[in-house]
Design a protein around this nucleic acid. Structure first.
Lengths: 188, 188
DNA sequence: TATATACAGAACAATATGTTTGTTATATTA
DNA sequence: TAATATAACAAACATATTGTTCTGTATATA
């Protein structure tokens, strides 16, 4: 890929992220992004069809990365400093959020958080299916598997939202405990 | 209140609701609303400062009503045909959604559902606090009350979302069972 | 009937949108 | 290094939206 393209793309992402942390998504104009990124008008439109596509691409990069990293867990620990191999994948995710992904954190805490929480959820679902459903770790119950997967997934997202809305007062370990406690009767 | 004002307000709400069920919120312009409602430009702005305020007012009317109705439950049953006084407040809400509130249902199922689900959640939280927390019906656990209330609230909202996303295949009774099953270890 | 006010209609400057055209700067490759 | 391709730029564009201001008309309320 052309170095110029990469630079421009990154400049747009950076400008967009900066704007998102201070403004509502709806109130951000393409003009704002162009001005902040300091690029030509034409350039923006060669990279992204609309503002919505920019958002989509940004989310796919951010959440795609964090989920893919967690996908191999706990087999591959990559370069992150996990306390032990017994750490749950959730603790892993929370640590990742807290330590490595300032960008994601800012977006998830911003006034636009619902947008990003939704993207987070749809990516996380894949992870839950791999880690629980496919491994047969869901407890037998009268609940349909799809309902259960949805419940477990959104409960984690809501937990993260709750944590962030209270300025991450608690440690990732505590939050993981809360979360696992709230769903412990549903999984093995 | 002046009859003219009421009519105009309702015309705007109707136009806005119609537009929301076919377009994304971001893509609806004030001009669209004006054209659809067939009112003067000035008129819109005397009623609503911005599109966001219109959204806020609409949500407050819709969710305010549905939650207030449920608030007195099961003491006052109002005019709805509940099977028995033993019906849970959740079953009551689902029936209300299915039978009485075509508007809300359409909005909650539309491509803009996340906006309305959020409003739904914030209103529902008050109800959960009244019905569970204040009555001491939350099971003792290591979880902070605020976390628990948030979990129970968002689980219901997510349940409704799941139900709607599958075109309400199941009956309100079944959905209530699913929901209560998923949180039964947390409440009395 | 008299008075107040909600609405309509037109016009406004300011801004945003998405596209086009021609030019310059910079990667890639041979 | 030189040749070629292409990314980015700048300027201009028609079009649309925004929020406001003005004047005149219609319709509530008292």
């Amino acid at each position: 890929m052309d170095r110029r393209q990469k630079k421009t793309r990154e400049a747009i992402f950076a400008a967009f992220t900066a704007l998102l942390s201070e403004k509502n998504y709806n109130q951000i104009s393409v003009q704002d992004i162009i001005d902040t990124a300091d690029i030509g008008r034409t350039t923006f439109y060669t990279h992204f069809e609309t503002k919505d596509f920019l958002l989509k691409d940004l989310c796919e990069e951010l959440f795609g990365h964090i989920i893919e990293t967690a996908m191999g867990f706990p087999q591959g620990h990559y370069h992150c400093n996990c306390a032990s191999a017994d750490d749950s994948v959730f603790l892993h995710l929370l640590r990742h959020l807290q330590e490595n992904d300032r960008n994601i954190l800012e977006l998830l805490s911003s006034q636009n958080n619902e947008i990003f929480l939704r993207y987070f959820k749809s990516n996380l679902k894949r992870l839950i299916i791999t880690q629980y459903a496919d491994k047969g770790l869901l407890k037998d119950s009268s609940l349909p598997e799809d309902y259960l997967v949805n419940h477990i997934t959104s409960s984690f997202v809501e937990t993260v939202d709750w944590w962030l809305s209270r300025d991450m007062k608690e440690s990732p370990e505590i939050i993981t405990e809360y979360y696992l406690e709230s769903i412990k009767y549903l999984v093995n």
